[in-house]
Design a binder for these strands. Structure first.
Lengths: 193, 193
DNA sequence: CCGGCTTGCCTAAGCACATTAGGTAGACGC
DNA sequence: GCGTCTACCTAATGTGCTTAGGCAAGCCGG
């Protein structure tokens, strides 16, 4: 009676566990328990707990990129901006463990083979709705990424939950502000009128 | 021959360890080794490894707030904005482990007794140089915090290190952009001309 | 249908860290 | 100098990670 374990099923189970108890508390032992299998058996499928965590991260990055692709389809400008922003925020709220996993630091090779580059491409797609050329586009990609990442982290960490106004409003207003900023992106030498 | 251990010395040693090996690899066992003391002995000073991690986080939050206070003294407007932003970024680069510790999720009571509120006050001090009233000021505080936090995390995570232009330039340009944004903060109903 | 081979899952064992219970001796108050 | 407190100890337990080596389930060729 073999359990039919695969790397993919391990990653999925790990992702579910992460959402339940937090990514940093994902243990290979608990995953084994959920498959009703001894811990050592998992070592035929993953090389160790680092490998498992990496696979969860890759899974999360893919899921996020897939959601992003759907959300961006047929949208542009501010519509696209908020759609992509909400993809990250909603995913983090639905799947905090996977979202945390998506932030795992990957080595260069793994990162390049991951869905990471798809995320960068998504940002650039959003920015096509604005009038930016290189290198400003890259700066804007990074700023956008920073806001999304930072806001979601802080909100999830409860940083905004102990004071008015509610974080939902701050999120909408921040996106308004970003949209305005991108429409009149300042150049250092000759600021726009 | 007593080692003269105190909670404060433990937190400092833990912080140094965090900077060397990463906050998530801080172990109470290694701290004990560094004091040349048995692990169990530390339990007279901290209640457990969670307690130790929390104390490291509190230490980092204080150090950051202290740096912020100095940096902000006598500055206003964009000068204050960049000074505060650089405090976070420089601290994270000098002390990655402590910076990671500063992001540890604290329970409400601990958070309120920490230097956390000083950070919020610092943001508001920076914003005094701009023409914002509540609730926009709070939205701006959150947006600023999101950018700082997000950019620093991404940069430290290597997200910007595999492509041109260098992240230093993006940082400066992002601060320029934030400054411009704060000077003409958009209101949702009646956007400024 | 059966013997062999692959391999998925097993037992066993070793190591690191966290934590608790209970002992001993150093430092300080009197 | 005597007693007390407490800083530090030894011992033991539990959890998780990892490797080495065994067994048998299930596919494959005959």
């Amino acid at each position: 009676m073999r359990a039919g374990i695969t790397k993919e099923r391990l990653a999925r189970a790990g992702a579910e566990l992460a959402d339940e108890v937090g990514f940093d508390r994902v243990t290979i032992t608990e995953v084994a328990r959920r498959f009703d299998v001894k811990v050592a058996s998992l070592y035929s499928h993953v090389t160790g707990s680092d490998d498992l965590r990496t696979r969860i991260a890759l899974l999360a990055l893919e899921e996020l990129a897939d959601r992003g692709d759907s959300a961006l389809a047929g949208r542009s400008g501010k519509d696209a901006l908020t759609a992509m922003a909400d993809v990250y925020r909603d995913y983090a709220r639905e799947h905090p463990g996977r979202y945390a996993a998506a932030q795992l630091r990957l080595d260069t090779e793994t990162a390049l083979a991951s869905a990471g580059p798809r995320h960068a491409a998504m940002s650039r797609a959003v920015l096509r709705g604005y009038d930016l050329t290189e290198p400003d586009q890259t700066h804007a990609v990074r700023l956008l990424g920073s806001v999304f990442r930072g806001f979601v982290d802080l909100e999830l960490g409860g940083a905004f939950s102990h004071s008015e106004p509610d974080s939902e409003t701050s999120w909408r207003r921040s996106l308004d502000a970003l949209d305005a900023l991108l429409r009149s992106w300042p150049t250092p030498e000759r600021p726009r009128p």
